[in-house]
Design a protein around this nucleic acid. Structure first.
Lengths: 218, 218
DNA sequence: ATTATATATATAGGAGTCCTAAGTATTGTC
DNA sequence: GACAATACTTAGGACTCCTATATATATAAT
């Protein structure tokens, strides 16, 4: 949240303000997309999150952390989605207290149809040049990592946190990084924010990967 | 809203996802900041908006457009702020139907104190290099302009829309642009997202300024 | 001038977000 | 086996946010 003063606001404040403006557009758009399938933005966001995570299901606590809301709030929205048949609560075999919330087939179909609708923000991102998109993605990765390190958001399923990530192993290539999961090189523009195959690396590995990653990106 | 599929999501989807993650952090943070003065994020956002606009006051409709919500929703929040003494509704001399909503002295003080609290997102932006910040700001300006052109958000009080903006008049300088309001040159890093002195330029002037601006930035 | 239409805002009603605080059940620990 | 921690739900309340409608004023057309 930016508190602009009468004197010239610093670049940090203006960047923050810029993010707010884009966020406003995304939120407005999310209402439209969600409305197509009879949901609201929060519910759609949960549904997309669950679809991206597959059959195993996610705990209520994880969903709450992902959304940045309290646990009861997550419960509210999950119940609403359950009533609508888009998600189901399964018993977690490893812990009888816990539930595994998973998207149903209807939920997956709903996400697909919501994804079809036009998006002004996507268009705005697409209007940037390829190089600008790549830079922007890299900046976002850096910002998100900072937020994660400071505890503002939970750990993200990003390449730079992943045990399969081998940064800058081909230093002079266009695809300097390597993913040990698919066993293939990849470039800066292919960095993931939320990868399905993600597996967390231990903190020290994350830290050293980050150092090596930045050395190349500088 | 991004709908990641099982196949590799494109860079646009990943950028969109990245913005969502940052937006989540900002929203969480906004709760904390707003709570300090007994508000919620929406109310604080309105209050900051009004403080940035001075004594003249803003119309309900403008506030709604700025927030990206319906007009009755804006009325709700404005009423809540009025009850708390942070804003007041003044009669608009030019239109008896309209009201001019303005921040009170208490409201301005409240914004100042909310602005004091630490911000993880600001820290994350500050952790980027000066050059990265500058690039990011430029990307945001471009994205916001696209959103504005497509009608997703209302006209923003940005340099690139302003009648005082003279882009690239000093092409080989570090401060290539000129602001006719303060009558001084300024650089890419000084671009405003929401300027107090903003005055809209007519559409054709905006379009040609944008072309000249991009020529230099390429 | 008068009627029609458009605009600015408010009100009504309802679903749902989102919070804190307090409960229930289960798990882990000493 | 008692005690604290954890996973989640329930309860209660303020507020967001919507659509639809009402009220007043402004503007345009006849």
């Amino acid at each position: 949240m930016t508190t602009s003063t009468k004197t010239s606001p610093g670049i940090i404040d203006r960047i923050s303000d810029g993010f707010s403006r884009v966020a406003t557009a995304m939120r407005t758009e999310a209402w439209t997309a969600a409305d197509v399938i009879g949901l609201n933005p929060t519910q759609l966001q949960i549904l997309i999150f669950l679809v991206g995570r597959g059959k195993t299901g996610m705990r209520v606590k994880q969903i709450a952390a992902y959304l940045g809301v309290s646990q009861p709030t997550a419960t509210d929205s999950i119940n609403s989605l359950t009533r609508k048949g888009f998600v189901e609560k399964l018993a977690d075999p490893s812990d009888a207290r816990a539930v595994a919330v998973a998207a149903t087939a209807e939920g997956e179909a709903a996400v697909r149809s919501a994804g079809m609708i036009a998006s002004s923000t996507d268009d705005a991102f697409a209007a940037l040049s390829t190089l600008e998109q790549q830079d922007l993605l890299l900046h976002l990765v850096k910002i998100i990592r900072s937020l994660q390190v400071s505890g503002a958001i939970p750990e993200q399923r990003m390449c730079v946190n992943c045990r399969y990530f081998q940064p800058n192993v081909y230093p002079n290539s266009k695809e300097p990084h390597h993913c040990a999961f698919v066993n293939a090189p990849f470039g800066q523009a292919d960095l993931r924010i939320d990868c399905g195959e993600y597996e967390t690396a231990d903190p020290s590995a994350q830290a050293s990967a980050w150092t090596i990653f930045n050395r190349g990106a500088a």
